[in-house]
């Protein structure tokens, strides 16, 4: 069975929520809102969680779209999580999808900060609040590890040397040399433009 068929099958088998329906928009809003509300950390943290939900749990889009959108979101001005949610929403359900995902992404911080602005001291030095946040952070870590390993496994399974080298090089650059992700993305885009035009890399 082809990959796309499998994904469609997965989508139907999994939860049977068809993009574009009213129920779909509600589920999309609810899940994006909750993930945005429970995720502490930058864009590269929220993306694996959204990916887990949209791709693995609901099958609304695939790995490739998610990775493309993440790369573009990283390179554009503005906040990466917002950029990604705008494009993911559009990919799944057009302009309405965008409206739903962008609202669901910005409402939780908007509400949280409005409240916290009044209770900052109480919040920042409370032991139980810190433990709650610490727990959620560990949960997010587990999801990122899972999504990361899964993507690495798929990358190596394709057995194409150049993409694997790009991944290893980028990993070392960002981890050991703290290179800004935007420069990594820029360099890898140029490498891709020059060396990866062959359809076998698509």
């Amino acid at each position: 069975m082809s990959n796309e068929n499998q994904q469609l099958d997965n989508a139907v088998n999994k939860l049977n929520i068809v993009p574009g329906t009213r129920h779909f928009f509600w589920v999309l809003f609810k899940s994006t809102f909750l993930i945005s509300a429970f995720t502490v950390g930058g864009g590269m943290v929220i993306i694996p969680l959204l990916k887990k939900k949209y791709v693995d749990e609901y099958g609304w889009i695939d790995d490739k779209d998610t990775l493309d959108i993440t790369a573009i979101a990283q390179s554009l001005p503005g906040v990466m999580a917002v950029n990604a949610s705008i494009m993911l929403g559009y990919k799944m359900a057009g302009f309405m999808g965008t409206l739903v995902t962008i609202l669901a992404t910005i409402l939780p911080p908007l509400i949280t900060i409005t409240i916290i602005a009044f209770f900052y001291d109480l919040f920042a030095h409370n032991y139980y609040v810190q433990m709650l946040l610490k727990g959620m952070q560990c949960g997010a870590t587990a999801v990122i590890i899972d999504v990361g390993l899964n993507l690495v496994y798929k990358l190596f399974k394709k057995k194409l040397l150049l993409p694997i080298l790009i991944a290893i090089g980028t990993f070392i650059a960002s981890l050991c040399f703290n290179v800004n992700p935007m420069y990594c993305v820029l360099v890898d885009a140029i490498i891709g433009l020059m060396l990866l035009r062959d359809p076998k890399y698509n």
Binding site: L67, A71, L151, I164, I166, V185, G192
Partner: peptide, 12 residues
């Protein structure tokens, strides 16, 4: 995009 996808995997 073929160059960018592995980069995102690495950044994640």
């Amino acid at each position: 995009l073929n160059g960018l996808r592995p980069a995102v995997v690495a950044l994640i």
